[in-house]
Every structure is written in structure tokens, then in C-alpha cells.
Design a protein around this nucleic acid. Structure first.
Length: 512
DNA sequence: TCTGGGGTCCTAGGACCC
DNA sequence: TCTGGGGTCCTAGGACCC
């Protein structure tokens, strides 16, 4: 049954620019990064004639394209608006639309219940959709593929681009795929194509003759069996509507490689602010913070740490990212920095982790948190409390003198003074912050683990441990910026004490 | 002027728990 | 108190997509 359609806007970014600016029509247009290290997002079909392609360095596209070619920075707001017009239109065709990207979507035509799903029926419907898109967008064209599966629909939409339509009749699928190069299959990128080439597998027909065991051997279970099935046009993936975001990230490639630590930290703060802001606007919070570092030679590493509790606070994201970066050798030059947030929790957490005073916090059942500032090597200012108290930013309202065993969080202990690279007030240097970051207030380091009470982490560059249950726990902290501290023993309700997230800390804990 | 930015999914090893 | 297997979580990296 020809029930699935794939709708793909043709060179959308460039098409929107040509629509909005008459002088660009008929001319080669490149949309993408126009600075030194930029790459092409979209090349208009006029520009493709000269060899310009998506993902090509813009410098290369400049070499290839003639004088008079327009090189434009993307205007995402305009593209988003056009995308919304198209998606709204598609939603009228079927209740089941899967938007894949800003310019692409699958439709399950059967979900509407009233469409004629014969080949002539879907052909007429697809032409109607194409005409409606062109009209509603002011001339941005779409190519559509229709077939029995996502695979066939997707390949079909590509087959007669731009402004084209392909309908694959039931039973024709394999014949359609057989002569095509394997690179047309979704999931076959440069690495897979190269491995297949070494096995003299060039077309999808070639691929269909390879043993499943070989494919799994070469590509692993998931990818191998996936290729096996796709080569046979065996694709039962459903069209799915809304999907939840799994990560939020921001990254930046610098015009010139950076080595200066202060500058790198400032960039981290910028990125963290973007990530935190998007978490907040999406009503999300994250437990895992990841940084990405691309070195001068393009080698790329990631470092991540998972927190005991989720956060959406840009300052906390920045602190974690800075601590992760502190363990990376940046002396040879950094080309790109990124900050990401994963393990997303889907709840609004203002009440839990907001920047309100920590005294509103309630303990998390069973959580034991033990923290210390690296400043003195001795655990300082640990107060009764729970996970949330650690989310308090530096210098925020502090409440001392809370008695052991009380549920109220005591806020920040003295331990955080000087305990991270984040100086007072610069946690999000130069960035708008929902809360002013005030200088940390130094306190005496007379604090320590207080036996018999719940303890929690501090907020600023400090480590903590948490657990639940019963027993006595011995804890010692050490880290690059902190010599091994004395051993502290205190009672908790659970021997299951575990180190949490401080990447530059080693929390050594044992239970007796 | 070699190689963006925002994502998803998979693999593999180690820790940890039962 | 010799050995092991399964499941889950965490981390790091890689391939791929638009």
C-alpha cells in the first residue's frame, strides 16, 4: 500500500532567500557560514552546477562559484516561519506527520482514513500537496516520494529533485532500489560506503546479495541487520509524531584556535548560558553535562559528568563544564568548544533548583550528601540538608546554624571559597543571568562532617557524595587542586555512599 | 583559510547490583 | 568464598543525518 509520503523542500534555505530577494533569483546562492571556517548549509541549484555542495567549506565554494554568486548567512527565523507554514499544511493532510527536520517530513496517509491510497490516488494527492506548498510559501518548491515504507518514500523524494514527484507502486520497491548506489540508503555514510566498496558492493542490488552474518560482522548487530533489511526494501518503521528531545547542546568553532584559559572559560560560560537558557525555555533539566573539545588538529574528545540531581541553571552548567575543561590539555590550541546537556528530566524545576533561597528546599528521601570545598582540604561547612542545597549558586543566600538532622538546607558552606575557576560574579561572565552572582562570602573552615546528620554538597567547585540507608561512612576528598584531606567518619542511613559528579575530585569513601 | 552546528543512535568497557 | 551471569548506569567515541 502506498501509504507513506516523504516531503522534502528543495534547497530550502537558498529558496527562501531567492523568494525574499528578487535579485537573487536565477543566480547561484550559497547559504552557510561566511566566515573563515564556515561551511555551506545549502547551495541553490544554480550554485550546484558549479560543484558547490552542502557541508563543503565555504572557501571551497567561493573558489568554485563564479563572480556574482551570493554568499549569505542563514536567517533561521525566516526558514522556521516557512517551515511552520508547510507543516501546518501537512497537518491538514494527515493527523500523523513526523517532522524530521526544518525542511522534511513523513506523512502517514492512511492515518487520515479518507485518502484514496491507490497509485493514481496518491499521485493526485501528492501533486495537490506540492502545489499547495508552493503557493503557501510563495514559491518554495517541494519534492515528494510516496511508497509503502519510509525508505521508499525517502528515496523517491530524492529521485526527481527538485520540484519532483515519485510514486513507487507496490511490488516495485526492489526494482526501484536495485540499481541505485548504496550511498542513497539512509545510514550509509562515508565509512559504511568505504567498507562496502572494499567488498565490491556498490549498488543496493549488490548489497542485497551479501550475507547477513557478513554485514553484522562488518557493521555490528544493529547497523548490519538494518542494512540487510533496507537492501530488501524491508522497512516497517512507523511514522511517529512528537518525539521528546534527548539532548541540548551548543558549540562554537573559533576563527583562530584558542589557547588562553581565561578566554576558553569565558567561551564555556557563553555556551553554558545558551544551553541552560534552552533547557529552561523547554521546561527541561539535565543530569549529565558534556563538553566537547576539538583540538587544532581536528581530533575531538568529549568529557562528561553526571550529577546526582538535574539542573537547568546556566551557572551550574558552566561550573561543571569548566571543571571538565580543566582536565583537558588545551596548550596546543582549541578549534572548537561545545557544551551539552543530556539525561534530561522532563519537569519544571523552579521549585526544586531555582535560584530561590535554599531554605525552601525539602530533603530528597534517603539522599545523603557529603561535600567539601577544596580550599582547605578539610570538609567545611557541611550542613544538614539534601541534594538541592548544592544547587545554590555562589554567594547566594546562606543560612547558617541549622541544627543537625533538620530538614532545612543550610545553603553553602565555607568550603566553596576559591574552590573553582568560577570567580565571584563571573560564573556567566558577561552573560545575562537571571540572578546576579554575588561574591562568595568567606567563612571559617571550622566546619566538618557532622556525624549523624544528612549532609549535602556545596555549590561551588566542591565535591559531594550521596547515598541512603544506614551505617557509618568514612570519607576523604582529594583532587588536583586539593591535596588529600583528612579522613572523616560520620553516620548515615545507608552504606551505599557513592561519589557524585565532581570531575576533578576523587571522593574516597568506605563504610565500616 | 579544509573540514559548521544541532541532533540521534550504537558500541564497548567498567562499575555495580542482584 | 569459587565463580558467574544478567541488567543497568556511566563514560567515550564514532557514524550518520539535515
Amino acid at each position: 500500500m502506498t501509504r507513506i509520503a516523504h516531503v522534502d523542500l528543495d534547497a530550502m534555505f537558498a529558496a527562501v532567500e531567492q523568494r525574499d530577494k528578487v535579485s537573487l533569483r536565477g543566480r547561484p546562492v550559497i547559504v552557510g557560514g561566511v566566515a573563515g571556517r564556515g561551511v555551506v548549509s545549502t547551495a541553490s541549484y544554480e550554485a550546484r552546477r558549479f560543484g558547490a555542495r552542502s557541508a563543503m567549506p565555504t572557501a571551497e565554494a567561493r573558489r568554485r562559484c563564479p563572480p556574482g554568486t551570493a554568499f549569505l548567512s542563514p536567517r533561521f527565523a525566516a526558514y522556521r516561519k516557512t517551515s511552520e507554514v508547510v507543516m501546518a499544511l501537512l497537518a491538514e493532510v494527515s493527523p500523523l506527520v513526523e517532522q524530521v527536520s526544518i525542511d522534511e517530513a513523513y506523512l502517514d496517509l492512511a492515518a487520515a482514513g479518507h485518502h484514496d491510497l491507490s497509485v493514481p490516488g496518491v499521485t493526485a494527492l501528492a501533486e495537490q500537496i506540492r502545489a499547495a506548498i508552493a503557493e503557501a510559501t510563495g514559491g518554495v518548491t517541494a519534492s515528494i516520494g510516496v511508497g509503502s515504507s519510509k525508505l521508499v518514500a525517502k528515496i523517491g523524494s530524492d529521485l526527481h529533485k527538485p520540484d519532483g514527484l515519485t510514486v513507487a507502486a507496490p511490488g516495485e520497491e526492489q526494482a526501484l532500489l536495485r540499481p541505485l548506489p548504496v550511498t542513497r540508503l539512509p545510514g550509509v555514510g562515508p565509512a559504511t560506503a568505504e567498507r562496502l566498496r572494499r567488498a565490491t558492493v556498490h549498488t543496493i542490488g549488490d548489497l542485497a546479495r551479501v550475507d547477513l552474518a557478513d554485514l553484522i560482522d562488518w557493521f555490528g548487530q544493529a547497523h548490519g541487520s538494518g542494512l540487510f533489511r533496507l537492501a530488501r526494501a524491508d522497512d516497517t518503521r512507523p511514522v511517529v509524531g512528537e518525539r521528546e528531545a534527548k539532548s541540548v547542546s551548543a558549540e562554537e568553532t573559533f576563527d583562530v584556535d584558542l589557547t588562553d584559559r581565561a578566554r576558553l572559560n569565558a567561551e564555556i560560560d557563553l555556551l553554558a548560558t545558551r544551553v541552560g537558557g534552552r533547557l529552561r525555555s523547554g521546561g527541561l533539566s539535565a543530569r549529565t553535562i558534556t563538553i566537547k573539545v576539538r583540538h587544532h588538529d581536528f581530533t575531538t574528545i568529549t568529557r562528561s559528568a553526571t550529577r546526582a540531581q538535574p539542573t537547568d541553571d546556566p551557572r551550574l552548567v558552566a561550573q561543571f563544564a569548566r571543571r571538565l575543561l580543566a582536565e583537558v590539555d588545551t596548550s596546543a590550541g582549541i578549534r572548537l568548544l561545545g557544551v551539552g546537556a543530556t539525561t534530561l528530566a522532563d519537569f519544571v524545576q523552579d521549585d526544586l533548583f531555582g535560584t530561590q533561597t535554599p531554605t525552601d528546599d525539602q530533603p530528597a528521601a534517603g539522599d545523603i550528601l557529603a561535600g567539601v570545598g577544596p580550599g582547605g582540604g578539610a570538609p567545611g561547612g557541611v550542613r544538614p540538608g539534601e541534594a538541592r542545597s548544592g544547587e545554590v549558586g555562589p554567594g547566594e543566600a546562606q543560612s547558617g546554624g541549622v541544627e543537625p538532622g533538620e530538614a532545612r538546607s543550610g545553603g553553602i558552606g565555607p568550603g566553596e571559597v576559591g574552590s573553582s575557576e568560577v570567580g565571584p560574579g563571573d560564573a556567566v561572565a558577561g552573560q545575562p543571568s537571571p540572578e546576579p552572582v554575588q561574591p562568595s562570602r568567606p567563612e571559617s573552615a571550622s566546619g566538618g562532617w557532622r556525624p549523624g546528620q544528612d549532609v549535602h554538597h556545596d555549590a561551588h567547585g566542591a565535591g559531594w557524595v550521596w547515598g541512603s540507608g544506614r551505617g557509618r561512612v568514612t570519607v576523604r576528598f582529594e583532587g588536583p587542586s586539593t591535596p588529600p584531606g583528612p579522613v572523616h567518619t560520620f553516620a548515615v542511613d545507608d552504606p551505599a555512599l557513592r561519589p557524585a559528579d565532581p570531575p576533578d575530585w576523587r571522593v574516597v569513601a568506605s563504610v565500616s
